[in-house]
Design a binder for these strands. Structure first.
Length: 204
DNA sequence: TGAGCGATCATCT
DNA sequence: GATGATCGCTCAG
């Protein structure tokens, strides 16, 4: 239930100071970027696929914190992934944000992802590629290890969630529940959810 | 269009 | 020393 609630939220991030010659004339801007969460995975404490399965370590300590914390980890030598803790303090539970549908700060996300200004007529395929994966969205939002251990809504380089048009929430029938991606253990646990009709879902 | 694979390093065994 | 909650490029079909 918590996972589905997270999926009904908009994720916003105030990334690093960002300068683009196209949008800024001489002065750097703080850019707020974000999007509707359209794909998530849940990881529980006694879950073989979870970082918390073997107990608390220096790396996964944030996952044992109170709900609403940000657990960011570095993987494959080059990627960051973002989780939001959801369990009570002492329980290693979190939700991996796997994809968002951009709603704000698209120019900033484009610059971060592709290293170039947003073109006048951006190809749909590249718009989707901005944030249709856990490491893609962290790159687009400017999320790195400096966010690890912070709480949602914390000031300065913060990350927040808010309900997206509460009167227009998608029906639960529009949400698909299925197995998680890219794991080698507990592969049958149906702990991934995504918005059925969103182009930004990483894998169907 | 999909399979295969290299990149690259923190973390854990 | 091995592995990984990934991504993007290349190549074959």
């Amino acid at each position: 239930m918590i996972t589905v609630a997270v999926m009904h939220s908009v994720l916003n991030a105030t990334g690093d100071t960002f300068t683009s010659p196209r949008y800024v004339s001489g002065n750097p801007l703080i850019v707020r970027a974000g999007g509707l969460i359209v794909e998530t995975e849940a990881y529980a404490e006694r879950d073989e696929a979870s970082h918390t399965f073997r107990g608390r370590t220096a790396r996964n300590g944030v996952m044992f914190g109170p709900g609403g914390g940000l657990y960011v980890y570095f993987t494959y030598g080059m990627h960051y992934c973002l989780n939001i803790t959801v369990g009570a303090e002492g329980r290693g539970e979190a939700i991996l944000i796997r994809a968002i549908e951009p709603t704000a700060g698209i120019a900033a996300m484009w610059q971060r992802r592709y290293g170039e200004p947003l073109p006048d007529a951006p190809p749909h395929k590249r718009l989707v590629g901005l944030t249709n994966g856990p490491a893609k969205l962290t790159q687009a939002l400017g999320v790195d290890l400096s966010f690890n251990g912070r709480m949602l809504g914390e000031a300065h380089r913060d990350l927040t969630t808010q309900l997206y048009q509460p009167d227009k929430l998608p029906n639960t029938s529009d949400i698909v529940q299925t197995t998680r991606v890219g794991i080698s253990r507990a592969v049958d646990a149906p702990w991934r959810w995504y918005v059925k009709d969103s182009s930004w879902v990483s894998k169907r």
